[in-house]
Design a protein around this nucleic acid. Sequence first.
DNA 1: ATTTAGCACTCATTCGCCAAGAGTGCTAAC
DNA 2: GTTAGCACTCTTGGCGAATGAGTGCTAAAT
Lengths: 347, 347
Amino acid sequence: MESAKDLSERERTILCAVVNCYVTTAEPVGSRSVVKQFGLDWSPATVRNTMADLEDLGFLKQVHTSSGRVPTEAGFKYYVKYLMQVQELTLRERSQIQDELNRKLNDTDDVLRQTTQLLALLTHQAGIAEAPAEASVRVQRIEAVRLTDTRMAVLLVDNYGRVRSTSVEVGESVSGDQLQRLNNFMNDNLSGVEVAGMADGVRQRLKDYFDEQRLLAQRALEVLDVLPQQKTKQLFVEGAMQLFDQPEFADMSRAREVFGLIERHDPIAAMLREGLQSSAGRQRVFIGEEGTALEGLSVVASPYTVNGRPVGMVGILGPRRMPYSRLTSVVDYTAGMVSRILERFAR
Amino acid sequence: MESAKDLSERERTILCAVVNCYVTTAEPVGSRSVVKQFGLDWSPATVRNTMADLEDLGFLKQVHTSSGRVPTEAGFKYYVKYLMQVQELTLRERSQIQDELNRKLNDTDDVLRQTTQLLALLTHQAGIAEAPAEASVRVQRIEAVRLTDTRMAVLLVDNYGRVRSTSVEVGESVSGDQLQRLNNFMNDNLSGVEVAGMADGVRQRLKDYFDEQRLLAQRALEVLDVLPQQKTKQLFVEGAMQLFDQPEFADMSRAREVFGLIERHDPIAAMLREGLQSSAGRQRVFIGEEGTALEGLSVVASPYTVNGRPVGMVGILGPRRMPYSRLTSVVDYTAGMVSRILERFAR
DNA sequence: ATTTAGCACTCATTCGCCAAGAGTGCTAAC
DNA sequence: GTTAGCACTCTTGGCGAATGAGTGCTAAAT
């Protein structure tokens, strides 16, 4: 792990300049242009020497002999860790974020979807948001409603205020009275229980029940098995199409790779999940490691909290070449707003 | 409008051959190759003459002087209308469709999503499915469930067996007893009413209500305003990424156009809606008109029925160059299966 | 000892040119 | 009415020269 000391003042300035320049132009940056553009008081030759040093250290590379330099993955990581200074949001931007998130949203999922759209709009990257971690999702309320003799609608409200519902065909017909007892049974036994494991929980205790209790439990299982499979979306993504505009995805094959990745959801979800665990140090930039599926991609994400506990991440996904100094601010501020808004729905 | 008579037997054979060849290769087709490939007993020169005639009629065109011929939009339309002979599905294909659609699906939306995925898989085009037309969606059951003093979860089941739900914050707290009366009020007054207009309906009759009825109606409005806005998806699309594989979308700008179109949903939904109205004659191929947003795109779609009434379309979207003879069969058969399955959920 | 000017060198990109190949249109023969 | 023959067109791919941006290195300047 590099320490900030490893680089001289001049090296740091130049690395910073190269990154900033490359982020906007997406082209290799040469010594002359960087001097002119940033008004540095060294000659191009000096800068060239320093850039050669930075290349030896692995922070820059040339795309071919005698072309300009491009920051490497390590270069970006160093930049994000030591060099970047966060760029505060303007008042306009703050109020835009507030306004967009204070629209009429009556559901946690609504909020997350709206958040991804907003982030995509503000950053011109793909907006992403992770639903609360499965392990923290608990039953608040279950209710079955009779539709016909053998079909009922079921409703599940969780501790994040999310409401999901579906319908289910049951084996034998259920009277209104029986339904009432079924609802009581489910709520008595399942309130506060982890949604992911609620069916298994009942199944295990099945042997402890007798008579009517046992009958109710069996009925409940028919409902419980079908409910969580009606899965709420685990990962929200919006605005992925904007990535087309980035030159790094200009050729089809690359674009297809990235889109395939996004469509599969798992790799990104996994990255976010991992980031959430280890983000105590609030490291919010994840630069895809070389050799992994996420090579060349970066994620900027911040945890949002409910009742003070971090439960998921919101952020953006885009090419490694991103204006991190602005994006971290946008994402951080947005995540904060999301946290405040979600408090309304949770209990 | 062309009649089949307008073309000679030879012209028809050759148009058909050109279309078939072009559909598989995506390249301009020359006289020599079409003769060889289809074993026609005319010489290339004869075919050339005929192709020139077909060009004059507007069914073929050359991409540049002295290249092979490519079918025009009109050419494809003629082919679909008069020349194409539907290709029956194999038993394997039929049973695959049956199997995929007979999985555990407990919701109309589930079925439609699964259908689009299946169609995308089978045809290598984008699968699309339209939800039942809004005008035909009626309330079967509404139920509000108390969560806290001022928040309730609400559940709406419609005549297609779709279940949607959300939560809503109400102005003043509601007791369990009041909630019971609210539910009764809503089900008494709204069963069978069009979902899209249910809130407005109550609003209009508001002046006829007095005392407790009026109070209930006002409470109901708080719920009803928020429910349909929790809109069920109107258009399902899956596998759009496969379109990247088609050479017509090889360049970015075109691909972006198409993806933008798909993401916007409206143009496609509008086309399907229109097709549903006029599809009495079961014309199931829609070839995007030149000059419109859908230029160069085609849709193959069939209506699915519920209780014998056509209520929506399922199908595929892809480039104009498609193997229509196979795809119409796949889509037709799938739509039939969907109809049968949806009967289960509807009432 | 550090910085800088000068210069030769490298490499991607662009353009024009040429040859090959696929396919056509036309004319004359069948 | 059909076909063989032939000249012509147009795309594609390869090759080489000119261009230009940018480097590395050396020697001079600070």
